[in-house]
Design a binder for these strands. Structure first.
Lengths: 347, 347
DNA sequence: CTGTTAGCGCCTTCAG
DNA sequence: CTGAAGGCGCTAACAG
């Protein structure tokens, strides 16, 4: 049997006052006599009393908890975003519940339901690579729970979003490769479920076009980001009659896996340059170190949190809010390292 | 104004039955007429009804939620443990709330209080490197909330624990270095707040002693694991009149940072061998790749979860349980790679 | 300033 | 099989 948890009633009884007064004293309500307040606080301390947040949330229909759903937590990308978001949220007395989906759609739906049933006051999320149906997001909105998307977002849902300049980033990255003299630039693209894939692919294509380099479909492969398959695709590229002299990858794990394969047959960057995306923790450590596009991960989290707080604090006029959903676009930065033999000396 | 959330009362009214019946129908209670059950379920579906977990937990004093507190989430170590624990817990219908402390003691205490006030049904945790006082753990136990510690554990608290064979692992690692012919083996140890530091240090010392190699205190530095300082310590080692020919580090980030410094002056492993601990995600990618001690991270999580479930399901006899707290010790494995020039060919 | 009362949504006796 | 009533711990009116 669970020991009876001490409640305000216990304190009230012992002090011979009402539980309302205890409640008020505990929550710092101004209209409580100094003396009784102190008595209550002392006894609470002595009794090892602790508020039952469950009851509290239940009573005021507010939990002060924010749910964060990420597709996975093994990469530093999402961990960093979470840290950034928490930084902002904690200052406003909001606590966070983190849920991850191991890139599984069902788990994502499940997590949304969990958070809703836990009555969170807001949700920040990025969908899995399997997600095509966004009805669960609509559920969030029907429940009037503020929602902010980041990184992997969708046009199908009207909500504030935080993204980076994927298109420009890819464009600049590829243009940089072109300026290095590369002519046949291959691209390992992500699945079409992700906007990021499409934008980066488009940036790649447009950069080629701008510089009058033909877009060769043999040099573009779109895949589901499961690293094991990279080997196959890279070998395919290398075995082409006219193999690529550069490889632009959807993300760093892909690029790193690709380099492993390439290194057995060719020199990087002399024979082929490799470029990643996101600046994962390990991309500076590889041999050669990986040129990549750095994303402001902490800021993505911070911005998402700020947007969510705005959303929470401006609920009243629902109709107008609908049209005002902002999309914050953050800047990325091309980090030139050894894998492209760029301008930096290989320190 | 928040839209009234549809509750069992709404369903009851609409169907002209009592809320008790609705409640029973919803939770699959056997004694409900097939017909009414279906009616309830249908209407619930139609009304987009969703159980209010808050109210539910509140009513049964059970949340089916487990709290996991980790010191930080940027390294893959804790993320992996979390994934392992969730795997086991989800099967038993428990959900997880993840909290991290950015290695900050106050935040740890805060997280414990948060979880307790959220009425979680159990807590799995590993403390920060700042933690010296464990009163907040005692608070958990006074509340009769099952607790399991892993990795960074303490003797001051009686509870089930999951650890690895730190002592043996360090002993074997150092012995391996000795067998490679290394004579002056330095050790960058962790802070004394962590049992792991002490055990690994002891393993290091005993391995030297066994092989009649004098323990030189100039070759042992204990530090707080903040990577920025590694540079200073490593330089200090290299500048010694008789510098080390091997360096055994408390963890991989330390070893990787150390290699960066060393590489500017010496060859690895020819002049000096470097050995890490934990097999972080990036340690296979460095140049040279890092020899390290692999920890079974997922299993640590799984074991911790299992112990917690046992704890939860065996509450009745509190007194006897006290003495039965098991400590599960998992095996590590020495992963030989290039930084020690070991037996494996540098693939 | 403080006590009283009602209620948050659900489950669980206890009677039919 | 089903309805009525009470309670989980706390807050928020509404009186005094």
């Amino acid at each position: 049997m669970k020991k009876h948890q001490v409640s305000i009633i216990d304190i009230a009884k012992e002090l011979g006052i009402s539980k309302s007064t205890v409640s008020r004293a505990l929550s710092g309500h101004p209209s409580v006599m100094e003396k009784t307040r102190i008595a209550v606080l002392d006894l609470a301390e002595k009794l090892d009393y602790q508020r039952n947040t469950l009851a509290l949330s239940f009573a005021n229909q507010k939990t002060l908890v924010i749910g964060i759903i990420v597709p996975e937590i093994l990469s530093t990308f999402y961990s960093s975003v979470i840290i950034g978001a928490e930084e902002v949220l904690l200052k406003e007395k909001y606590r966070c519940i983190i849920c991850h989906c191991t890139e599984n759609y069902d788990r994502e739906v499940d997590n949304v339901k969990l958070l809703l049933s836990q009555q969170v006051d807001g949700i920040i999320l990025s969908h899995t690579k399997e997600t095509r149906n966004f009805d669960h997001y609509k559920l969030i909105q029907r429940r009037r729970v503020p929602l902010v998307m980041f990184n992997r977002v969708t046009d199908l849902i009207e909500a504030p979003k935080v993204v980076v300049d994927d298109y420009e980033a890819a464009f600049r990255a590829v243009e940089y490769l072109i300026k290095l003299g590369r002519k046949r630039i291959a691209h390992l693209s992500g699945p079409d479920t992700l906007v990021n894939s499409k934008l980066r692919l488009q940036g790649y294509i447009d950069a080629l076009k701008k510089h009058k380099i033909p877009v060769d479909n043999d040099l573009i492969i779109s895949y589901d980001l499961s690293v094991e398959k990279v080997k196959i695709y890279v070998k395919h590229f290398l075995d082409l009659p006219s193999p690529p002299d550069a490889l632009f990858c959807m993300n760093d794990p892909t690029a790193i896996a690709a380099m492993e394969v390439i290194k057995k047959r060719l020199r990087i960057p002399e024979d082929i340059a490799v470029l990643g995306f996101s600046n994962d923790g390990s991309s500076a450590l590889t041999n050669p170190s990986l040129t990549t596009v750095a994303q402001p991960t902490f800021d993505i989290g911070r911005e998402a949190a700020k947007l969510l707080l705005q959303e929470i604090n401006s609920e009243p006029d629902l109709e107008t809010a609908q049209s005002q959903h902002r999309t914050v676009v953050l800047k990325t930065k091309l980090l030139i390292r050894e894998s492209t033999g760029g301008v930096l000396s290989p320190k």
